[in-house]
Structures are given as structure tokens and as C-alpha cells.
Write a protein that binds this DNA or RNA. Structure first.
Lengths: 235, 235
DNA sequence: TATGCTAACTGGTCGGACCAGTTCAATTCT
DNA sequence: AGAATTGAACTGGTCCGACCAGTTAGCATA
């Protein structure tokens, strides 16, 4: 009934980052507003000043705030200056309630990234690569019934990331990892909409195309999958 | 607002992160190796334990290390698990000496990102958008002779980012920002190879095409620019 | 040899102290 | 009265030393 599986504990810093993220993303403050000082937050939350300081550094890295030393911490114009981390923060806080245009842009990007990887892999794949992908798929098929929603999504993410890794285009792997949180949200929805059996069938079809060195076919399959997903969202 | 002045000083944390980044990227340790403890680094560097701890958090965010609480800090398999931040770290340490394949992948991605933005902007641009881009370009032209290499690169980055902003596709802006460090390295090289006059001419050509709502033309111009750059690299 | 327990070690946190710029209102000078 | 100056309060950045709670490895025991 209870069966906690997520990280049961949240480090103080994570808790603080989450708290302030919420405050900012919920619109409690506007762009340019000066936030309470680190000391005030420390007093309010009961956390140490160290944790608050470190937390603000992370928020700055996420693009949500601007730190002006000796002056204060200000809400950044994060939709202009933010990065993927900002997007990840939004996703982690708002869940899967993303605008259609946002989803579309993300998927277009994934198409660009993985499409490149697929083409490269098709032209250089070895038999070991195929065997490796087959083994991964079998493993996934075997364990899928015992997996939770997010765990499944993670597995599909890892499967597709493997395409990037095997393609030997390390930059693509790095980009792929960058879209991790966003991708998880996608796969959770995808599996809900199409079912696990269908999703696995797709993986096997990918393997066939890679084995046949059909780069264009593999790219098209990826594009079709994304288009189908978007079409289903419409309904 | 833009063209941020260089900070002459390096904060202790930044110095530490740089030091350890170098140690890892130079291959002093191998994937999975256990690093000295925070306390040891604190003693060695003379920095406070707080700074070392915070530094390791940043290194973990960059994907260079795995922190296992109560156990130790281990060198991560960052080429598999890293993100764009990892790439940025590599670029900032190695300078512009990137492999051809890396550059190619990055530029392909930029083409995908900005290409989407250009098409969107062409179909929705207002007269204000055009005026805004013209003003930016004029400003750049006027100040270009007094600007340093990196400052120029930053300006070109901001100009192209403006395309994403004006396209109203906020996700693209976020992605664009994610590639900031990588893009700066590109623009520095680009301006070296083609000269500032040519580069500005290109910006003006972009404005013409956007004004004419020629999305395909703008996309092609972008693609051509990248192809030219890669061709020149060849020589 | 296998097992179990202890003690050292680790990252995570806290709070106080100090530093050096920033800010702004009260003060001083013109 | 208005402009320039000063200074005290406040800010982020850093360091320290102590403590907490899991991890780990070595030593003693069976």
C-alpha cells in the first residue's frame, strides 16, 4: 500500500531549491524582483545558511535567478536566459501539463538528435551492436510487467540513448542526456497512450531497420512515431 | 545588459572546480576511481570544506563525478552520463580544440534549433521584429571595431538567440542558451575565418529573408553558412 | 575460514564569525 | 534648498569546527 520507491529522503538543499522554484514558477514574484536574503530564508526554513547559499547557486545554474554579490538575489527573466535545466525544473514541478507547442519543439529536437544517431549507426553498425540492442529489448520485455510507469519510461529512454552511444557520436549522447527529464515525461505519456506491447514492438522494428542498415527507414520510423504521438494528443 | 564584463577574479569554488575538472579530463583518474575525500581536498587546497563540498556538487551537475553519500566521490563515465554542461566544461578547458565530428554534431543541432525558429519567425514576424533586428545589427556594426574577439562572438550569439526569442518558441530559446559556451567557440572561429564584415552582411541578409517571410530561404542561408564553415575548416 | 561487531571514515548539515563590496538614508557642505 | 559625502546596515562569499548518520573495512571472535 505504501511501498515507497522514490527517493524517500530529500536533501535539505533539494527541498529548498524545490520550494523556491515553486515560488518563482508560480509567479509569486516577477522578473527582476529582489528575493529575501539568504539569511532570511535560512531563518524561515530553519536550514543552514550554507544550504541556502548552495541552493541559490543551483537556482542560478538553472537560470531562475540572478545572483548579484553583495547586493541580492533577483528573479531572472528565465524564459529568455534559462536553459534546459529551467525546462526540467518546470516539468518536474508542473508534471506533464506542458503546452502543445512546447512538446512539439522538444520532440522536433529529439528527432534531430536521435535521427542523426540513427543514420550514423546504420552506416557503421556491427553485429555486436545488434546483439546488444536485442538483449536490451529482451530484458525489457521480460521485466516490463513488473515495472512501474516511471521505471518503464526510464528504460525506454535508456534504450534510445543506447542508439546515441552505439553511434559513437558522443555529443549526441550528451545532448540526449540533457533532455532526460523532458524525455521521461514524454515516454510516460507515450506508454499510457499506446501501451507497452506496441512500444516494444517499435523497438524491435528499429532493430530490424538498423540491421538492414536502412538509415532513412529508421529515421522515418522515428518521425512517424513522434507524429503519431502528436496526433493522439490532439484527440 | 549584454556584453558582460569579464570577472577578473576567480572565486575559490570556481578555482577548485577548474582544478578537479582538469584532473579528471586530463585522465589523471579513470572512470570509477574514488577521489580523495572532501576533507583531503580542503587540506590540500587550503579552501574550506564548504567550498569543496559545493564544488563537488557542481562537478556532479556537470556529470563529471558521482557522489555517493557516506561513501565517497567517484569519477563518472561522463561521456555516457554527462550533459551539455559536461561538453561546456570540456570546451572551457580545452579551448577551441574540438574534434571535427563534435563540431559537426553541434552545428547540426544548431541548424535544427535555429531552423525551427527561423521558419516560425518568418510566418509570424511583425514590422517591430524587423525594426528590432535592424537596430541590433546597426548597433553591432557600429561597435564591432571596438569589440574584442569574445565580445563579438557573444554579440553574434545574442543576435541569433534573438531569432528564437522573437519566434515566440520559448523552448528553442532555452535550448539555444544551453549551447551558449559551445556557440561562443563557434563564433570566435567563424569570425576569424570569414571576417567581421562578411559575418554582418550575413545578418543583414537574414533580415531581408525574414522580412520577405521566406522561411525556406532563411533556413537554407543558415545551412549554407554552416556548410561553408565546415568546408573552410577542411582546408 | 567464516562471521559479526566496532571504530574510523565519508558526505551532509549547521550556525557563528568574519570579509568586502553595495546600498541608501542621514549628514555635511556648498 | 540642493548636491556631495559619509557611514552604518545589509548583502553574498568564505571559512571553521562541530556534529549526524550511513558506509566500509579491519579486527576479534567463534
Amino acid at each position: 500500500m505504501n511501498a515507497e520507491r522514490r527517493k524517500p529522503v530529500l536533501t535539505n538543499k533539494e527541498a529548498f531549491v524545490k520550494k523556491v522554484s515553486k515560488e518563482i514558477l508560480s509567479g509569486k514574484w516577477r522578473t527582476g524582483d529582489k528575493l529575501p536574503s539568504e539569511r532570511e530564508y535560512a531563518a524561515e526554513t530553519g536550514f543552514g545558511k550554507t544550504v541556502i547559499h548552495s541552493g541559490f547557486e543551483q537556482l542560478a545554474a538553472m537560470g531562475l535567478v540572478d545572483i548579484k554579490p553583495k547586493s541580492g538575489i533577483y528573479v531572472a527573466d528565465y524564459m529568455k536566459t534559462g536553459s534546459i535545466d529551467t525546462l526540467n525544473a518546470i516539468i518536474n514541478l508542473r508534471g506533464n501539463e506542458l503546452g502543445r507547442d512546447v512538446i512539439e519543439a522538444i520532440l522536433d529536437l529529439r528527432l534531430a538528435i536521435e535521427g542523426m544517431a540513427l543514420r550514423a549507426l546504420c552506416s557503421r553498425r556491427s553485429d555486436e551492436d545488434i546483439a546488444h540492442l536485442c538483449a536490451m529489448t529482451e530484458e525489457l520485455k521480460k521485466r516490463s510487467s513488473a515495472m512501474g510507469e516511471e521505471e518503464l519510461a526510464e528504460s525506454f529512454f535508456l534504450w534510445h540513448r543506447e542508439i546515441c552511444i552505439l553511434s559513437r557520436k558522443s555529443v549526441l549522447t550528451l545532448f540526449m542526456n540533457t533532455t532526460h527529464d523532458v524525455s521521461i515525461a514524454f515516454w510516460v505519456n507515450y506508454i499510457r497512450l499506446f501501451g507497452i506491447a506496441f512500444a516494444i514492438k517499435r523497438l524491435e522494428r528499429f532493430i530490424e531497420l538498423i540491421q538492414a542498415r536502412d538509415g532513412e527507414g529508421a529515421y522515418q520510423l522515428l518521425a512517424v512515431g513522434i507524429a503519431e504521438y502528436l496526433a493522439k494528443l490532439e484527440m
